[in-house]
């Protein structure tokens, strides 16, 4: 165990950890909100995120982001952000419609819904992983070659962004990390306020607390569920955007690991609890970074899994408790 390395680089490790954690937190929101309302693990939420990363990548490619700079680059990035949000939101809504609604209507057992979500997750991932073949089938492969080639390998947009680093009190900080942390935390705060204050948000909370009473009080459950998926999707889109800023590389199966980690973050903070998702995400990101400094980066992914198992054993309701419904207004 490399304690020395950890202690010598503690501030840097913490900041990059927080940046990862912020992304986990944004994805965790999708798990936590759906769980809060439906008591279901939206296993396919990881794919919602994955499609967002590709929307970002493709937008940057289509608008020739590699050669842009200055204002134009910023405009392209903003377009990419909206593309990612749009794509993720659309996938989330499709998921709700196809993989969940028929089951919710039938009041199917939760395990069946989970199985459906697992199936949907693999379908979505494989569609992306086989997109070259799909395009070939549709006869589009010539036009789309740039976008569909390398379907099963890493697709990168490296070199689009410069990532200046600067020193704060002797600690080297990446500007991207700062952007990621600030943007993610900002979004979370906005969302938290939205759920607490707005009419739609109150509907979501009411449904989470007691779906029957809520629907008696005039909250439309189907619509509430849709809104929940929509918000989760948008947040995952933002997460995808930030992820691509930071990592610059994606792949058809990038969702799986990130999804498990985001779910871990949600459980860590207390599933169903928005603030818990943020706290859980940040803790997980930092723990992972510290852990990989300590044990070696090859153990990085094991850390998240071990943490997940440990939390469920020690405190299955998470740090802040489970409560979308009980969120104090």
């Amino acid at each position: 165990m490399n304690f020395e390395f950890l202690f010598n680089n503690l501030p840097e490790l913490t900041i990059t950890g927080l940046a990862f954690g912020a992304i986990y937190a944004l994805v965790a929101l999708g798990y936590t909100m759906v769980y809060g309302v439906l008591q279901l693990i939206n296993f396919a939420h990881s794919e919602v995120f994955m499609y967002g990363t590709f929307a970002m990548l493709w937008t940057v490619m289509a608008l020739n982001g590699a050669e842009a700079d200055g204002v134009k680059l910023i405009a392209i990035l903003i377009a990419a952000l909206f593309a990612a949000m749009l794509m993720s939101a659309a996938i989330a809504l499709i998921l709700e419609r196809v993989a969940y609604r028929p089951l919710i209507k039938r009041d199917a057992p939760r395990l069946i819904a989970l199985i459906s979500a697992i199936g949907a997750s693999f379908v979505l991932a494989e569609l992306m992983g086989l997109r070259d073949k799909v395009a070939e089938w549709l006869g589009l492969d010539d036009n789309l070659d740039d976008y569909v080639s390398g379907a099963r390998i890493n697709n990168s947009m490296a070199g689009v962004l410069e990532k200046p680093r600067f020193d704060v009190a002797g600690v080297s900080v990446s500007s991207i990390d700062l952007i990621v942390i600030v943007a993610a935390v900002g979004m979370m705060v906005l969302l938290d306020q939205f759920v607490r204050r707005s009419r739609l948000g109150k509907g979501i909370r009411a449904t989470a607390q007691d779906p029957e009473t809520a629907s008696l009080m005039g909250v439309n459950p189907t619509r509430t569920i849709q809104v929940t998926f929509l918000i989760g999707g948008i947040m995952a889109g933002i997460a995808a955007f930030l992820y691509m800023l930071k990592i610059e590389t994606t792949r058809f199966d990038v969702g799986f690991l990130l999804g498990v980690k985001a779910f871990t973050a949600a459980v860590l903070g207390g599933i169903g609890n928005l603030r818990g998702a943020l706290l859980g995400g940040l803790i997980l990101g930092v723990a992972e970074n510290w852990g990989s400094a300590l044990f070696g980066t090859e153990w990085r992914d094991v850390i998240a899994f071990v943490l997940l198992v440990l939390i469920l054993l020690v405190r299955p309701t998470g740090l802040l408790g489970e409560s979308l419904g009980k969120a104090r207004a």
């Binding site: 819904a113 459906s116 697992i118 693999f122 086989l130």
Partner: peptide
């Protein structure tokens, strides 16, 4: 297409023939 097909089978079975 194996994974795709069996993934699809999971969704379809869960929704129409659990």
């Amino acid at each position: 297409f194996r994974v795709l097909v069996f993934g699809l089978a999971l969704v379809v079975l869960a929704t129409v023939r659990p």
